[in-house]
Simulated scan of single mutants.
Amino acid sequence: MTNHAPAAADVPTALPAAAATGHTILQVGPVNPDVQAALAGEFGALRLPETRPEREDFLHEHGGQVTVAVCSGRIGVDTELMRALPNLAAIVNFGVGYDSTDIAQAAERGIPVSNTPDVLTDCVADTALALYLDVLRRISAADRFVRRGDWEATGNFPLAVRASGKRVGILGLGRIGAAIARRLEGFGCELHYHNRRRIDGSPYAYHASARELAEAVEVLIVAAAGGPESAGLVDADVLTALGSEGYLVNIARGSVVDEPALVSALVEGRIAGAGLDVFAHEPYVPAQLLDLDSVVVLPHLGSGTAETRKDMARLTLENLRSFLRDGSLTTPV
């Protein structure tokens, strides 16, 4: 699904407009194929070159005309790019996360930003549940055990840990966190959570900090939004509180967890294991994790199903069409 930016020679020199709206649309980085096809065919969007010399030349020539940027959750409109687009009027984001975009600058300049909430909630929650089951029951490690021939050569696989009935903490009880909690109710789990604010009417036990949450549970599932406010929220102290029999699952953003502290805790056995869909410097994964059977690593595929990606593409284009039509966004952040 990865798309590559065109060579500099392929970047349009004339500025196409989006139908008769007078807007000029810019695609920033690779996006979903359905979105890209619509951007090129329906909207005549420009595409930002990825290499610096071509990018600088492009922005010098066209930056002042761009009014709408379309991007993904992984490659947003960062501080430098936003400053190079003085007439930017809206940012349309493919994905629920938008921490790669300079939201503070957008707010200061009155630039609305959209994302694609709800449509990916179930698939991300399913991924969290898959990681939870995998790391506790050691499913991937057992698969490797069989494929290596160890079952035949050495006998039974070592015992795993029961997944049902656990005390589980949800760090970030938003849409996705709540969907994860509902799934874990079916496993008879005792559920706890930490948010910036207590949720009125929640049936789950609230804790005032991430550390207090980790101290109270056996498994900590990270579902908090990314961005500067949550950076390093799960730090060495939180991991120490989780303890040598505790497990971490992260389907949020790699930035939410202090990755060096996590690697150290896993290598030294100061926590029991981790199921990770996200990392601090994707696609780089710390090499120390790759040889640990106590760790399950995924390539950031939380919402990666054909059905969900189609729904996300539909909502992205719905936001774009709405803004071009009347200046409103369907799902503003």
Results as ranks from 00 to 15, higher is better:
N3G: 10
A7S: 12
A9N: 13
A14V: 15
L15P: 00
A18E: 05
A19W: 15
A20I: 10
T24K: 07
I25K: 01
Q27H: 10
Q27E: 12
V28Q: 01
N32M: 10
P33Y: 14
D34P: 04
L39R: 01
L39Y: 04
G41T: 05
G44H: 02
L46Q: 02
R47D: 01
P49M: 14
P49S: 05
E50T: 10
R52F: 11
P53Q: 03
P53R: 10
L59G: 02
L59D: 06
Q65M: 01
V66T: 02
T67G: 00
S72W: 04
G73C: 05
I75K: 02
I75D: 01
V77E: 04
D78G: 14
R83L: 08
L88Y: 14
A89S: 14
I91T: 09
T101K: 09
A106S: 13
R109H: 06
V113M: 11
T116E: 06
D118E: 11
L120K: 02
C123G: 00
V124N: 06
A125Q: 05
A128N: 02
Y132F: 13
Y132I: 07
V135R: 03
R138Y: 07
R138C: 00
I139Y: 03
R147Q: 13
R148H: 08
R148D: 14
V161K: 10
R162V: 15
G165T: 12
R167A: 15
V168D: 08
G169Y: 10
G172M: 02
G174D: 09
R175L: 01
A178T: 14
A179Q: 03
F187G: 08
F187A: 08
H194E: 08
R197A: 13
R198A: 11
R198Q: 15
Y204I: 13
A205I: 14
Y206W: 15
H207G: 04
V217H: 14
V217F: 13
G226P: 08
S230K: 01
A231H: 12
G232L: 05
G232Y: 09
V234R: 09
A236I: 11
T240L: 06
T240G: 08
A241M: 01
A241C: 13
L242W: 00
Y247G: 00
V249H: 12
R253S: 05
V257S: 03
E259P: 07
E259G: 09
L262M: 15
V263R: 02
V263W: 02
V263K: 04
V267T: 13
E268I: 06
A272F: 08
G273K: 07
G273A: 08
A274C: 12
G275R: 11
G275E: 04
G275H: 00
V278D: 11
G304C: 12
E307M: 11
T308I: 14
T308Y: 11
D311C: 07
E318T: 13
N319Y: 01
L320Y: 00
L329Y: 03
T331S: 15
T331E: 01
T331N: 12
